[in-house]
Amino acid sequence: PDFTLHWNGITIHFKGIDEEQFRHLRELLDRGVSLEELEELAKELIK
């Protein structure tokens, strides 16, 4: 499924991740993950 997340004025689209992965990403963003960390995470998910 696809998810869209609005965070700090940025709209991020996640394609092909499951709800569990999306929930994990939201928790990280709510905790204050940096954009660099988010990019690293995205690379991991894409593999």
Rank of each mutant, 00 (worst) to 15 (best):
G16W: 07
P1S: 13
F14P: 01
D2F: 08
S34I: 06
I12S: 00
D2N: 11
G32D: 05
H24N: 10
F14E: 01
S34L: 07
E39P: 05
E40G: 08
E44S: 13
H6I: 06
G16M: 02
F3G: 01
L41Y: 14
G9T: 01
H6A: 04
L29Q: 03
L41P: 01
T11H: 15
F3Y: 13
E19V: 06
D18K: 05
L28S: 07
I12Q: 01
I46D: 08
E39Y: 14
L41M: 09
G9W: 02
D18G: 07
K15C: 06
T4S: 07
R23F: 10
D2Y: 10
E39R: 13
L29D: 00
I17L: 07
L41H: 07
P1M: 15
I10Q: 09
N8S: 01
N8T: 01
V33L: 10
V33A: 14
E40P: 01
L29C: 09
K47R: 10
Q21T: 12
E44T: 08
H6Q: 12
A42C: 10
L25Y: 04
W7N: 02
G16L: 03
L45T: 07
I46G: 13
A42F: 15
I12P: 00
L45Y: 08
H6Y: 06
F3L: 04
F22N: 01
E44Q: 12
P1E: 10
R26E: 14
H6M: 08
G32S: 06
T4L: 07
V33F: 12
K47Y: 01
R23P: 02
D30K: 11
F22Y: 11
E19H: 06
F3T: 01
W7R: 07
G16H: 08
H6V: 14
P1C: 08
H24M: 13
K15P: 15
V33H: 10
L25M: 06
E44H: 13
L5Y: 02
E40N: 11
D18I: 03
W7K: 13
L25S: 00
L25W: 03
E19W: 05
D2P: 06
T11P: 02
L38K: 00
H13R: 08
A42W: 13
Q21M: 10
H13N: 10
L41S: 03
T11R: 02
K47M: 08
L45S: 07
K15M: 14
G32H: 06
L38Q: 00
L29Y: 06
G9S: 02
L35W: 09
